[in-house]
Design a protein around this nucleic acid. Structure first.
Lengths: 165, 165
DNA sequence: TCAAGATTGATGCAGCTGCATCAAATGGGG
DNA sequence: CCCCATTTGATGCAGCTGCATCAATCTTGA
């Protein structure tokens, strides 16, 4: 439990931290320069738009996005303030509520995907062959599992237009 | 400039974001549970302790840590408040100053490395063979370069006890 | 020499995060 | 049926980040 990490492991750790932060910065900057809100908004709008009826319980959103409860609560506040979503009461459970995406929200999500996908291509896709991208996924997945005991039922939450970090 | 990323690239992007954030969370939590301050403090103390005379210009620290100027300025405030570093004026350039690590700072850095290295081993080292760690480094490095035109003179900022994210 | 620009560092402000806590509603066991 | 634990969501507080800006000093070039 106190063994030292190899220099290889330490290097990998440092690369993981530095590269992720740099690539994320680049993507966020591109989005911001295009006049869009932060990525977290996109993620939330995507989850909502994917929901069959365009609405989710905050607690569902929280689980999808892997962010804490208070963070979800305040993110919803902001989306509602901007007219991208609306809160609706939940009749069968008066503690809860539903968050429903608005038309403006759906539209923003689609427009953001244009800039977002371009940024992914620019900072990731263009630097790695598909085969290498697959290798990278495999290596990263080995780190990701059993860290905080996540249960992501459909492990690959990724299809056509669905980056949801 | 508007080509869509492959699903492989998109997957890699998502993994990079999610895995990094989970692993970082885990490591930070372990440090916090051991009663230590955030990793950024460690990074700063490490850079200072490595400097030949135990002191650096804030602007140097900034470049080493790849964080913005105001962030450096306030991090130094906190280190000084906690007695881990001290500010000294720079006689030859009255705009500037030197930040010098204190004995308490050096000691904290060493104690943190115990917990930090254990966490790296736990969340990275133990999940990856050295060969795989090297592969991961290689793939990540392909993403990292030419993103924001960094110039890290000695590319490998990593030797014995020196994780400096 | 001196004015314009660059460099160095600090700070006010707004927004976001984590933490702790709170209130309301639900649900289950005795 | 009722009390208590659990679930759901909101919020006050402190700390941190990014942005813009400021002040002081240094450097350069005409």
């Amino acid at each position: 439990m106190k063994r030292k990490p190899s220099t290889e492991a330490t290097s990998a750790w440092i690369r993981l931290m530095r590269v992720q932060s740099r690539v994320l910065d680049c993507v966020e900057q591109d989005l911001k320069k295009a006049g869009f809100p932060p990525l977290a908004w996109y993620d939330a709008l995507l989850e909502l738009s994917r929901a069959p009826s365009g609405e989710l319980r905050p607690v569902e959103l929280e689980r999808q996005m892997l962010i804490p409860q208070y963070s979800t609560s305040r993110l919803i506040d902001r989306l509602v303030d901007e007219g991208l979503a609306s809160r609706r009461e939940c009749k069968i459970d008066k503690r809860g509520q539903f968050v429903e995406i608005t038309e403006a929200g759906r539209e923003l999500q689609k427009r953001m995907w244009g800039a977002y996908s371009a940024a992914i291509e620019k900072y990731v896709g263009s630097k790695l062959s598909d085969a290498d991208a697959v290798k990278l996924c495999g290596l990263l997945d080995r780190l990701g599992c059993s860290c905080g005991e996540m249960k992501l039922p459909p492990v690959a939450n990724v299809n056509e237009t669905s980056p949801s970090r």
